[in-house]
């Protein structure tokens, strides 16, 4: 049993409710005890100036520190932004300043000890791949999955800390019986951060990654970040229009993919909320379930 301070992030509680539901179910099944942090703010998502987001994140880190457990997110962007703030907050002088100016008046202090982890890292490092395999009552044999990390689970090194983490998705898909389909842009930006600022670029990125996955024969892409999901799934039809091509690439959250291997049905994982139909994956999973029983 591993316990974490759970930071779901804004999007899992907003436009990607399926991520929240599926994550809760998966964690429950794997024995990850979630103590959800309520009284915490948005990480800033790399949008807000770090002058503002560092104090907000220091507050969050301090709350997790009080609980004495790692902070777990289900969003790469949250992971990256908090982890980078955490790196800066290791500097005692800077940490003192933030504590003094922003946290002290609420009786808080961040001592610098909280570890920040993404669900993906918890799956591999705390649950263990063996346990994951053993718990996969419905291994995803024959399902071709294209891992898409996006930016923040591969870089920067000081936030990722352990280089092995850069290939964890592949390890997880393997552990649950799936087949990996590698694409060249798996560690590139999905386009989301540019969506309002330079839409053309954002959609071009989306089209590039999703069409490459399709060309390489993937049944679905899997993402550890709801922003990647909003982009690759939510904007895919507009990317198709801009780039004048059909793509139809289903995008699954990491939790949904793992959940299906653990025996949850696709609808329990709320795939019906997606924009791009996940029918082909659903059918594959259903037929696996039939053969399994």
């Amino acid at each position: 049993m591993v316990k974490v301070a759970f930071y779901p992030g804004c999007v899992a509680k907003g436009s990607c409710p399926e991520l929240y539901t599926s994550s809760i179910k998966v964690c429950e099944k794997l024995g990850i005890e979630l103590a959800e942090l309520e009284d915490v703010g948005c990480t800033g998502a790399g949008v807000l100036s770090s002058e503002i987001s560092d104090p907000i994140n220091a507050r969050t880190l301090a709350k997790a520190e009080q609980m004495g457990v790692p902070l777990m997110t289900i969003c790469s962007t949250c992971t990256g932004v908090i982890a980078l703030a955490n790196v800066r907050l290791q500097d005692p002088e800077y940490r003192d300043k933030i504590n003094r100016e922003f946290l002290a008046e609420d009786g808080l202090e961040y001592k610098g000890t909280t570890e920040v982890k993404h669900l993906l890292w918890v799956l591999v490092e705390d649950v263990g791949l063996d346990v994951l395999t053993a718990a996969s009552t419905q291994p995803l044999e024959g399902v071709k999955i294209s891992p898409f990390y996006g930016c923040y689970l591969r870089r920067p090194d000081e936030a990722i800390k352990d280089g092995n983490r850069k290939s964890y998705i592949e390890k997880v898909t393997q552990a649950i019986g799936g087949t990996n389909v590698d694409i060249s842009g798996k560690g590139k930006c999905c386009g989301f951060p540019s969506l309002t600022i330079n839409e053309e670029n954002a959609l071009a990125m989306t089209a590039k990654h999703t069409s490459e996955a399709r060309d390489k024969g993937a049944d679905a892409m899997v993402v550890p970040c709801p922003l990647c999901h909003l982009e690759l799934d939510g904007q895919q039809s507009r990317a198709e229009a801009q780039e004048k091509q059909d793509i139809d690439m289903p995008i699954l959250h990491l939790s949904q993919l793992v959940g299906m291997a653990l025996g949850f049905t696709p609808s329990e994982m709320e795939v019906q909320r997606h924009f791009v139909s996940t029918k082909n994956v659903e059918e594959k999973v259903k037929s696996l379930a039939v053969t399994a029983s």
Partner: peptide
């Protein structure tokens, strides 16, 4: 339609006031 965007009002976080103070200071 897909149930992604809810029509319920957006609620404040419990710590919203503290966060607003951070903004004000910066």
């Amino acid at each position: 339609r897909k149930g992604k965007a809810s029509l319920r009002p957006h609620k404040s976080r419990p710590g919203a006031r503290q966060i607003a103070k951070i903004f004000a200071k910066v």
